[in-house]
Computed example of a mutant assay.
Amino acid sequence: MKPFEKITQILYEKYVKEELHRLEELKNPKIVYVTDLVGCSHKYYLRRLYPELTIKFEPSAVLGNLVHAGIGTLLREKGFEVEVEVSTEVEVNGEKYSVRGRVDALKKDEGLVVEVKTARYAQDIPREHHLNQLKIYLEILNLENGTLIYITPDKIYEFQVKREKISLESLVKTLVDDTAHPRYEWECSYCMFRKLCPYAVEKSE
């Protein structure tokens, strides 16, 4: 095996191992991810039926993971907790759901949550779904301040985000009742389920 192929295999095995670990969780209808709450509601249903389709070994995903790992190392040296699992329980329609997520970095003594995003270009940032994701984390953790960082090929952008009152129950209800499909028209172009989805929006020429 050539050296570069060995490194590629290491990256592949780590990425796929993490994704395979999540497969059973993806099938559980009572587990809701924070990212579910800021995206298409029907994707939540399709991922339970076809969880294997969520595994895509793409260079962009690997690059994002490496950037997160690098920034995480730097922030840990500054006293941050990194890759922090968070969860809360929400009741909707008489059923209890576990809302789960993973914060990129957290400094509780400063009441600060940090989210890191990679992007190919800086158009339309900060993006609404990223802001909402960070605000949901602030709500779950009962903290006041967030920082949203974008790493692009040309520039690093940093946005300060304040906590806003968010009804997790309403967000989960929208998901469970499947009333936001898609939430944004652009989602369909990037969705692994678009060829199976009755709500997919075809991109106009």
Score class of each variant (00 low, 15 high):
2 K>H: 15
4 F>N: 11
4 F>T: 04
4 F>L: 13
5 E>F: 08
7 I>R: 07
8 T>W: 10
8 T>Y: 14
11 L>P: 06
15 Y>V: 05
17 K>T: 01
18 E>K: 15
20 L>V: 01
21 H>A: 11
22 R>P: 10
24 E>C: 11
26 L>A: 02
26 L>Q: 13
27 K>T: 11
28 N>W: 10
28 N>I: 14
30 K>F: 14
31 I>C: 05
32 V>I: 08
33 Y>C: 08
33 Y>S: 15
39 G>F: 08
39 G>D: 03
41 S>C: 12
42 H>P: 05
42 H>D: 03
45 Y>T: 02
45 Y>W: 00
46 L>T: 09
46 L>F: 07
47 R>F: 00
48 R>C: 10
50 Y>H: 06
52 E>H: 11
56 K>L: 12
57 F>N: 08
59 P>Y: 07
60 S>A: 07
61 A>S: 09
62 V>E: 05
67 V>F: 13
68 H>Y: 10
69 A>R: 14
72 G>T: 08
75 L>H: 14
76 R>F: 09
77 E>H: 00
78 K>Q: 14
79 G>I: 06
81 E>Q: 12
81 E>R: 06
81 E>N: 13
82 V>M: 08
85 E>C: 04
87 S>G: 09
88 T>G: 04
88 T>H: 02
89 E>M: 04
92 V>R: 12
95 E>S: 06
96 K>M: 09
97 Y>Q: 05
99 V>D: 13
100 R>Y: 10
100 R>K: 15
101 G>C: 08
102 R>C: 15
104 D>Y: 05
107 K>T: 14
108 K>F: 02
109 D>P: 02
109 D>Q: 08
110 E>L: 06
110 E>F: 02
111 G>T: 04
111 G>H: 07
111 G>P: 11
114 V>R: 13
115 E>W: 00
116 V>C: 15
118 T>R: 12
120 R>F: 13
121 Y>T: 14
122 A>S: 14
123 Q>Y: 02
123 Q>S: 00
124 D>H: 10
124 D>T: 04
127 R>Q: 11
129 H>R: 00
131 L>P: 03
131 L>Q: 05
132 N>A: 07
134 L>V: 08
135 K>L: 05
137 Y>W: 00
141 L>Y: 12
143 L>E: 03
143 L>A: 07
145 N>L: 11
149 I>G: 11
150 Y>C: 03
153 P>D: 13
154 D>P: 06
154 D>I: 04
154 D>N: 08
158 E>G: 03
160 Q>F: 11
162 K>W: 06
162 K>S: 13
163 R>W: 10
163 R>Y: 14
165 K>T: 01
167 S>T: 04
168 L>R: 09
168 L>N: 02
169 E>Q: 01
170 S>Y: 12
172 V>R: 10
172 V>S: 04
175 L>W: 00
176 V>G: 11
176 V>E: 14
178 D>V: 13
179 T>I: 01
180 A>F: 08
180 A>T: 06
180 A>N: 07
181 H>G: 00
183 R>M: 00
184 Y>N: 03
184 Y>T: 02
184 Y>R: 04
186 W>K: 07
186 W>C: 05
188 C>S: 11
188 C>T: 08
188 C>Q: 10
188 C>E: 03
189 S>K: 04
189 S>D: 14
189 S>M: 02
189 S>T: 05
190 Y>N: 07
192 M>Q: 10
198 P>D: 13
200 A>W: 02
201 V>D: 00
202 E>V: 03
202 E>T: 03
202 E>Y: 03
203 K>Y: 12
205 E>R: 12
